[in-house]
Design a protein around this nucleic acid. Sequence first.
DNA 1: CGGCATATTGAAGTTGGTCAAGGTGAGTGG
DNA 2: CCACTCACCTTGACCAACTTCAATATGCCG
Lengths: 247, 247
Amino acid sequence: MSSDDSCLVAKLENYAELSDRDRELLSALEGDSETVAAGRVLMRGGDPVRRLFVVKTGWLYGYTILADGRRKVLRIHYPGDVVGVEQLPFEAATHDYEVATDAVLCPFPKNRLDAIFNDSPRLTALLWSISVIENATLLDRIRVVGRMNATERMAHLLLEICNRLRVVGDVGSDASFELPLPQAVLGDAVGLTNVYVSRTLSKMEDEGLIARDSRVYTLLREERLGEIAEFTNRFAKMDTTWFPQQH
Amino acid sequence: MSSDDSCLVAKLENYAELSDRDRELLSALEGDSETVAAGRVLMRGGDPVRRLFVVKTGWLYGYTILADGRRKVLRIHYPGDVVGVEQLPFEAATHDYEVATDAVLCPFPKNRLDAIFNDSPRLTALLWSISVIENATLLDRIRVVGRMNATERMAHLLLEICNRLRVVGDVGSDASFELPLPQAVLGDAVGLTNVYVSRTLSKMEDEGLIARDSRVYTLLREERLGEIAEFTNRFAKMDTTWFPQQH
DNA sequence: CGGCATATTGAAGTTGGTCAAGGTGAGTGG
DNA sequence: CCACTCACCTTGACCAACTTCAATATGCCG
């Protein structure tokens, strides 16, 4: 496989120059690939975690189910993501993962990361940075879920999804994109019920903020949505000045 | 300063063996220290971020204020924490930080991290792991705030604080500890109002779950609280088997 | 002693949850 | 090609949890 068709390499090159060696190290992670069907549970909380996954295509999400059945989606993963970094320091998975759409994943054992740690401090810093940025989106999510009302929550979620998809080019120039997740999952992501997600999206549609055609969403007034949700695109820019020098 | 009185070194040594060189690298980060008075704002969202801080003593927390004044505490920082890792990839701070109690901080420029990246892949992996674990506590927080009721939220918060403090030994054998944050801040942390925090804590006290004496809290039935909140102590154990070898 | 921040308690108001009924659309089998 | 199913979405009526507003209490520090 050439590194040209690696969405991970493409994503990382947005932020910093990669050496040939770096590209080689990353390609090694995407060696094998495996197809997983929509609806499959990739991993369960408590399972031993020995592998990470680079997502080549498809969507998945991490979630937990509370004792009484309430469910919370913790993080949505998009093409180009490395799934499992959040499990690195744990012997057993902290939560479940479901594959939302048919997906192509490239699994690799987590101890293969040591090649990166040993050979490329710079690439290590870059991967860490990506994980910290995703972290920042979690802080945003905490802010949203902890203090915002339903419309603000949905606006924020749609903006985040739209901007994540833009990184891999899956968004039209009119800010339209396919969102293959059912409303119940969107609700689980932002802490609302499926019923109230429906009501809220309908209201946003009535107000001309968004349009929907089955599961294709269009952000008609993206700027306004940004104000409503006080949205910041965390992936816009990265500070790499502190990175260790290539050597 | 000897590394013996470094809470950062102490914390890290819980999880993996450190070489003399590692200890040296870490001590370099805690060279200078600076005292900051309770109530001071350490950093504001938008400020350039050039330094990280090792917390030697004291509490601080990160927060954001929404346009209409609603406030959300994003993360509480304890002694031994490295504050600012979450800002590494950003040119400007993503949110504000307030010092909650008089604190001693050791600031160091973020580009001094490259010594660690270059010289100790193993220490790099360890620091990354710590940041991923903190990440996991954020996921827990999202679960709590997104799907749990007031009692469950407060139970979870108290357990998390108690277990974080245990790492630095600030908890009595009867599970009692000083919690110097006003109830409004606790509410901002879990997405409740100060009023409802008061009601909820009173109710928990009536039920014999906790006891309070001014700001000293005792978890009378810690096990039961753990069930209520479905709490997991993320700092209990770390998988270091995948770490790059010392070389 | 006075002032200020914090905590408690009560009463009334809202947002979103719950329960339930119906509608829509894609996929399947006859 | 139609009927059946199943998953998902929508809408209405009622309800509960938490918020808001307001008054009062407590406690610390000058």
